[in-house]
């Protein structure tokens, strides 16, 4: 098996965050069997940063250029991968919203098993072994995928390692394909907010906020991190309509693994913990010193959040030299 194909994601000519991490995962997997790593980029025109992919781990960078790739066009990507698939033991994508849409399509087209949302991928004899959280992180499943495998790797699971090679560029032909899903574009919200699943820092609020307008306090704290923080929420406040569901962290919301997670006025229901327990550092602020959230927090402060959060915002700003 050994040779690995990474299907990288680009949007508007810019590679998506996580591309280097995916190549690192692929590199480590390929090196186990002395194989090669190819990176495939499907785009409508030029893509910036392709010359960095060699250093990130790609032996070859395959560019598939087609006007249909101006927006996400899964059928075209699937057709392209299908046309070059011979010789690869595994196809890797990032487990982003797009990657999770693409991976099962690739698997169905290649007749391959599919490992979704994996945090570790390695070779195990002839099989590809993947480790992945299930039951929203309440358990960890290890699977062996036999034959060619399609694997969607969580962007946060690997840290990019520079391999120091230069990747060869090569154009590949996009075969004719029938577009069935017509993506017309991506609307970005007026207030450019970072997705909780992507942010390095998540400031999450729960029922302890008392009132939806108090999310303003959390937005100020997030803003102090200068664009690398997003505001999250517990299910209770999303269900109460205090904040849109995209902010929900937990079993029926998003699973996040930021470097720093603030749980503010969040009691720590089991469904919420399932969605954030893999955060590197968890800080809990709650007026109830017995709140379960303190059991998973690295650092806890008991107190009135209306007093603690503004003080914290000021301190973060000071620490960041703002």
């Amino acid at each position: 098996m050994a040779n690995i194909l990474c299907v990288l994601e680009q949007r508007g000519g810019t590679l998506r965050k996580g591309s280097a991490e995916l190549l690192t995962a692929a590199r480590q997997l390929a090196d186990q069997g002395g194989g090669t790593v190819d990176a495939l980029v499907c785009a409508a025109g030029d893509v910036a940063g392709l010359d960095t992919l060699g250093a990130a781990g790609a032996d070859r960078v395959l560019t598939a250029t087609h006007a249909g790739f101006a927006h996400y066009a899964p059928e075209g990507i699937v057709a392209t991968v299908h046309s070059i698939a011979a010789g690869y033991g595994a196809v890797l994508v990032s487990a982003t919203a797009t990657g999770k849409d693409l991976a099962p399509r690739l698997a169905a087209a290649l007749g391959a098993p599919c490992g979704m949302d994996v945090t570790a991928v390695s070779a195990s004899g002839d099989a590809i072994r993947v480790v992945r959280p299930v039951y929203a992180g309440k358990a960890i499943q290890t699977l062996d995928l036999s034959g060619v495998a399609v694997v969607a790797v969580r962007p946060s699971a690997y840290t990019a390692v520079a391999a120091g090679k230069a990747g060869a560029m090569e154009a590949v032909t996009v075969p004719a394909f029938t577009q069935r899903l017509n993506v017309s574009g991506i609307s970005t919200p007026e207030k450019a907010t970072l997705d909780v699943a992507e942010a390095r820092v998540v400031v999450a609020g729960g029922r302890g906020l008392g009132d939806p307008q108090h999310f303003g306090l959390l937005e100020e704290l997030a803003a102090a991190f200068g664009g690398e923080a997003a505001v999250g929420a517990s299910r209770a406040v999303v269900d109460a309509g205090w904040i849109e569901h995209g902010a929900q962290v937990g079993q029926t919301g998003k699973t996040v693994a930021p470097d720093l997670y603030f749980a503010i006025g969040v009691s720590g229901a089991i469904q919420h913990l399932a969605g954030m327990r893999t955060a590197r550092t968890i800080v809990a602020i709650n007026r109830d010193k017995d709140a379960p959230i303190f059991k998973v927090a690295d650092f806890g402060i008991v107190g009135d959040l209306f007093e603690v959060v503004p003080a914290l915002t000021a301190a973060v700003k000071a620490a960041k030299g703002q």
Binding site: A236, S267, A269, D288, D290, A291
Partner: peptide, 8 residues
């Protein structure tokens, strides 16, 4: 809500 108890 109450003491962070899980769903009933």
């Amino acid at each position: 809500m109450a003491g962070g108890s899980a769903a009933y």
